[in-house]
Nucleic acid binder design. Structure first.
Length: 877
RNA sequence: GGAGAUAUAGCUCAGCUGGGAGAGCAUCUGCUGGACGUGUAGAGGGUCACAGGUUCGAGUCCUGCUAUCUCCACCA
């Protein structure tokens, strides 16, 4: 056995261990009919991405679950991969080209894609290596990419299927347009933010000269595209206007006044300008009334209409138009007004609603099984409250705009006949037009929304559309782990795609986590510069410490704050585990410990075995309910408090005495308990547990060892009781000594007095460690107070009194004071217990077990009180 | 305008189906005996936001209210 370092140094260990795991293919899973599968697919990070704390949390949670299930004997598969991230990547590559002085358009589609793939090959894998640093046990042999051959095949298949069922259609509709990225985006990609703006009141002259109609708008520049003014049909004020024509200022057009219930009488002036081509509501109104749709904007949001405003930027035009209206006396007033502005979530640009030909997925029918899945419990969210968010979105879902005016992505498999305009949707380019027979067909220029391919991720990565063995065995996956911020983008789309294409929900559970924030609670962001790099934390404190920090004290769905003190405390725990193990290995001295018979075990051994046994039961329960924070807290407390601070201290006297007949039992127990604790800790802290385990065990790796299960033969209730009594006495003694300022070096005889022979037996049995833990020179266990000096200090536990003659140190007044404090405490406890037991309603309604519990407490407190009173009397009180 | 979350020790947060308020860090006081000072033994510190209600019993369930945060929403 090698000598272990005094402090744990993760950097020396982690890489070597990860290489070992990789080399032995522990992460790899193949179909194995004899085992039950447990599958997770990774939320594929963007190829443009760099590992941040959000990833670190997400991957840690998945790795914990997958390692846990693997140890439980499941055939655990964690499928990794990356997402092509159409817009982000396209922007990055475009910028790179620009720096080289190359214009994307001049380079052309083919040249651009070549560069994009080169870029992907060069930088795209970076994040994968970063995931490995965390200890992620992904099956890297199965690494996928949303634009690889198989995923692309799945995309084509789904597109064609949905098209043929009529769920995908092409239409001219109002969509969200990003004037900077120059592409359409879906509703989910629009972020709404409240912005301070103005409300401009403008008079539109009535053509018959009878006056004006006053409208109010937040976007005066769009008036160039107005094709009507609407009033509510029930608004008495404006009945006479309906049907009249208005002169649209700054143009030579005339527009009608129409009546539509969409208009709110109470808001603004009650008259609304209708701009069908630049506002989603107006678009609807326009379609109802067959109004012309006049587009006044170019793709870069400059104005496009005959006249002086042509070519102006939208905001420049706004200023000019307001100025001109004012000069013409048509501007009535300007009010301050804050309103919602839609921005593109990738670049922050204000989105422009525009009418464009785009491809859409019709959502109404597709959404139904996804709604049903949550309602009938086939799919559950952890925590449950995310059901509501999910359902609310699905129940109000609108058609999904899936075409993007980008090059990096899956090109839409639609071909147009140059002659007759026929649309052919097919996996491969048709050579002739099925309608007119000509041979000139051109493929649609657009690509698909990046989420179209990620929606298929749980099954496309397992071989779909081929009915592979993998698919049949590993699918549906078990749990999806992700942040609440992409429920709309991703989770919902995976669920309805799963039902539509495979007839099943793609996973059974969705474990939602929150955001990792900085120590002040702010979002970590590039612009604030407050991000903490997980890789830096790993290199300084180790991946285990980072992982522990990310799961400790965090409940599912809640945001968490990240700060260095917590990382340090996790690192300290790793060191604690390291040193406890080092201590045990030093004592084992490489000797083989034979299986020890239960009859050879002492009460302390049985106590700790019983504790680790119930720990296994509880932790398993917590992990099955995804309560990972609670589970790891219990493991932490067990290792540090029960095992290190109590059990190891208890067995030291036995270890030091080579003649001790129970020494072997102590060594065996230490090893058993440590191994079990390490196993439970392994999913959380994989590296340190592996390193220690391999130094301790003959098995080749902890990650393929078996998860501890509850075993009846390790259930020792009597010993748990006995040891808790001794611990109680030790605590009492320590308290007294601290109170009296007795240094640890000053030993005293400790008398344990109890009339109960069983209690005396417990202390007799525990004599060796009880003496050590209570700084006793000698322990005397007896039935009465014979031989105990009256001046000895005392502490009471149920069923026993403990005395220590500390002669010269004794301060009688202080002793009395302490006893009186204890008396007051006991009085309060007795009052509470008696209050309950004397309450008829409690006795008649509370469960029997609870009543029994309280009765036992009453007995204990009464005993202790008697002892305290007796002692006080003895002291002349 | 809807919906949700959060409010517990100085700080950051746990607390599952109701049955004597917890952890880590911080603060204070001891302890250097043979795993660990990244340690150890102790201490102080909480009307569990507020007000009602249900219950023998409420941090936990219900109602209301306040504050903060988040999501959704077409009031121009």
């Amino acid at each position: 056995m090698k000598e272990l370092a005094k402090t744990y140094d993760p950097t020396a260990i982690e890489e070597r261990i990860y290489d070992k795991w990789m080399g032995r293919k522990y992460f790899h899973a193949e179909v194995e009919r004899s085992k039950k599968p447990f599958t997770i697919v990774i939320p594929p990070p963007n190829v443009t991405g760099k590992l941040h704390m959000g990833h670190a949390l997400d991957e840690t949670l998945q790795d914990i679950l997958i390692r846990y299930k693997r140890m439980q004997g499941y055939n655990a598969l964690w499928v990794p991969g990356t997402d092509h991230a159409s817009i982000s990547t396209e922007v990055k590559v475009t910028n790179q080209l620009r720096e080289e002085g190359i214009d994307k358009q001049e380079l052309g589609r083919e040249g651009f894609l070549k560069r994009a793939w080169e870029w992907k090959e060069e930088y795209g894998g970076a994040i994968i290596n970063q995931l490995k640093k965390l200890g992620s046990s992904c099956d890297w042999d199965r690494e996928r990419f949303t634009m690889d051959e198989g995923c692309s095949e799945a995309v084509l298949e789904v597109f064609i299927r949905l098209y043929e069922k009529g769920y995908i259609y092409k239409g001219s509709r109002i969509i969200n347009w990003c004037p900077v990225c120059k592409t359409s985006i879906s509703d989910a990609e629009v972020e709404h933010e409240e912005q301070a703006g103005h409300f401009w009141h403008i008079n539109y002259p009535i053509t018959d000269g009878s006056g004006y109609v006053e409208i109010a708008t937040t976007r005066p520049e769009t008036m160039l595209g107005d094709t009507a003014v609407a009033v509510n049909p029930e608004d008495e004020r404006y009945q006479h206007l309906i049907g009249k024509m208005l002169k649209l200022p700054l143009t030579d057009r005339e527009i009608p006044v129409i009546a539509d219930p969409y208009v709110d009488k109470e808001f603004g002036t009650g008259c609304v300008k209708i701009t069908p081509a630049h506002d989603p509501n107006d678009f609807e109104v326009g379609r109802r009334h067959n109004l012309p749709e006049i587009n006044i904007m170019n793709d870069d949001a400059t104005i496009c209409c005959p006249g002086k405003y042509h070519g102006m930027d939208r905001y420049e035009a706004r200023k000019a138009i307001v100025k001109d209206l004012e000069e013409q006396g048509l501007l009535v007033k300007v009010e301050d007004h804050s309103h919602n502005v839609g921005t593109h979530d990738r670049c922050g640009t204000t989105v422009e609603p525009l009418i464009k030909q785009q491809w859409f997925v019709k959502m109404e029918e597709l959404a139904k099984p996804a709604v049903e899945a949550v309602k009938n419990g086939e799919l559950t969210f952890v925590p449950e409250r995310f059901d509501k968010i999910y359902l609310h979105w699905l129940e109000n879902i609108r058609d999904w705009c899936i075409s993007r005016q980008l090059w990096w992505g899956h090109r839409i498999p639609a071909y147009y006949c140059d002659e007759c305009g026929e649309i052919v949707v097919a996996k491969e380019a048709p050579s002739v037009c099925p309608k007119c027979g000509c041979t000139h067909l051109t493929q649609d220029e657009d690509t698909l929304d990046t989420w179209f391919s990620s929606a298929l991720w749980p099954f496309s990565t397992l071989g779909w559309p081929k009915q592979t063995e993998d698919l049949e065995y590993f699918y549906p996956t078990d749990v999806l782990v992700t942040g609440y911020d992409i429920i709309f983008f991703w989770v919902i789309r995976m669920v309805f795609s799963g039902y539509e294409q495979t007839g099943k929900s793609p996973f059974h559970h969705v474990l939602i986590h929150g955001l990792v924030r900085d120590s002040q609670g702010r979002k970590m962001s590039k612009s604030l510069g407050n991000g903490i790099d997980p890789l830096e934390i790993i290199s300084e404190y180790g991946a285990d410490a980072l992982r522990l920090t990310l799961v400790t004290g965090n409940a599912p769905g809640n945001d968490m704050r990240f700060y260095m003190e917590r990382v340090k405390s996790s690192r300290n725990f790793a060191n604690k585990v390291w040193n406890a193990s080092r201590f045990i290995m030093m004592n084992l001295e490489d000797q083989k410990i034979a299986e020890v018979d239960a009859s050879a075990l002492t009460a302390a051994d049985k106590w700790i075995l019983s504790k680790v046994n119930s720990l296994a039961e509880e932790v398993t329960g917590n992990m099955d309910s995804f309560e990972l924070g609670i589970a790891v807290q219990k493991i932490y407390d067990f290792i540090w408090d029960e095992f290190c601070d109590w059990y190891i201290e208890m067995v030291k006297p036995r270890l030091w005495n080579k003649e001790d007949t129970t020494r072997e039992a102590a060594l065996w127990t230490l090893k058993q308990v440590l191994i079990n604790a390490l196993k439970m800790l392994h999913p959380y802290m994989p590296f340190i547990t592996e390193e220690i385990f391999c130094n301790l065990s003959d098995e080749e790796s902890i990650m393929i060892s078996s998860w501890p299960e509850y075993k009846e033969e390790w259930n020792f209730a009597a010993e748990e009781h006995a040891i808790s009594m001794i611990k109680e006495a030790v605590r009492g003694i320590r308290n007294v000594r601290t109170d009296m300022n007795v240094p640890n070096s000053k030993k005293a005889t400790v008398y344990v007095v109890s009339e109960n022979p069983q209690v005396r037996e417990i202390f007799e049995q525990g004599r060796s460690f009880f003496a050590a833990l209570s700084f006793a020179s000698e322990v005397k266990v007896q039935a009465d107070k014979a031989g105990i000096e009256e001046s000895a200090v005392s502490t009471m536990i149920p069923e026993a009194a403990v005395y220590m003659p500390l002669d010269e140190l004794l301060d009688l007044a202080k002793e009395k004071e302490r006893l009186k404090k204890e008396e007051v405490r006991l009085q309060k406890e007795l009052a509470r217990v008696n209050g309950m037991l004397n309450n008829e309603k409690f006795v008649s309604k509370a469960p029997a077990a609870k009543i029994q519990e309280e009765k036992e407490k009453l007995e204990k407190y009464t005993q202790m009180m008697d002892q305290v009173k007796e002692r006080l009397a003895q002291l002349g009180e």
